[in-house]
Amino acid sequence: MSEWSYQPAADQELPPGQRLRSVRRETGVTGAIAHYGWGTFVRLYLRAYHRLHIEGRENLPVDAPFVVIANHSSHLDALTIATALPWRLRRKAYPIAAGDTFFESHTTAFFSAIMLNALPMWRKRTVRHALDQLRQRMLEEPCGYILFPEGTRSRTGELGTFRSGIGMLIAGTAVPAIPCCLSGAHDAWPPTSRVPRPRPIQIRIGKALRFPDTPNERSGWNDVAKQLEAAVRELRN
């Protein structure tokens, strides 16, 4: 007979405000219902208002862990990628969002955490430590991430340079990184516009890349970033 083992929530000892902003945040039934409900609403919205077209779903993995990366030019990007994932992956997928935009006030933090299931990345703080925590969680839980290696939204719609942070997350692991290319999102909701416009959006999902033999150090991280940037560029053409 095996011993009973208890595994309290990783964020069990944090007060509510800190829980929402913690990368260790775990949610239960209510969180899953909110996440599913919001996801369904967004799916209907993207299909109806932006005539969303998805290509390459067969390239998605069967289960976590995984990392989905894409070009970033609009607030619709993470929502679009999440919509492209089936529920079995979406329920384990955490979009990595800028802490200073999405987790600053209690209201936005609540919305980002409960509806989007997002985890914060504080761009001005110790990125290395946060990425280590994310890497550990991804492998242990396991879970998936949706992130944008450019680090910020492109102001022109062009693809920027990928930062090496993505490498810190997956170098030396067998976790699949799935490159995606979003088109039309910048036109639909550019950073200069207050509300989205009814323009079509397309997402193309590429074949997964893995980096099990890439060293988990500066040179390896850069290598991962370069290869993934090239993969997204190729999908754009």
Partner: peptide, 21 residues
Amino acid sequence: YREYARATGLFRHHALSATVA
């Protein structure tokens, strides 16, 4: 119940927690 479920880890079993609710 929510506090108890989070402390014991039962909250990860959504179907059971929903049934208790």
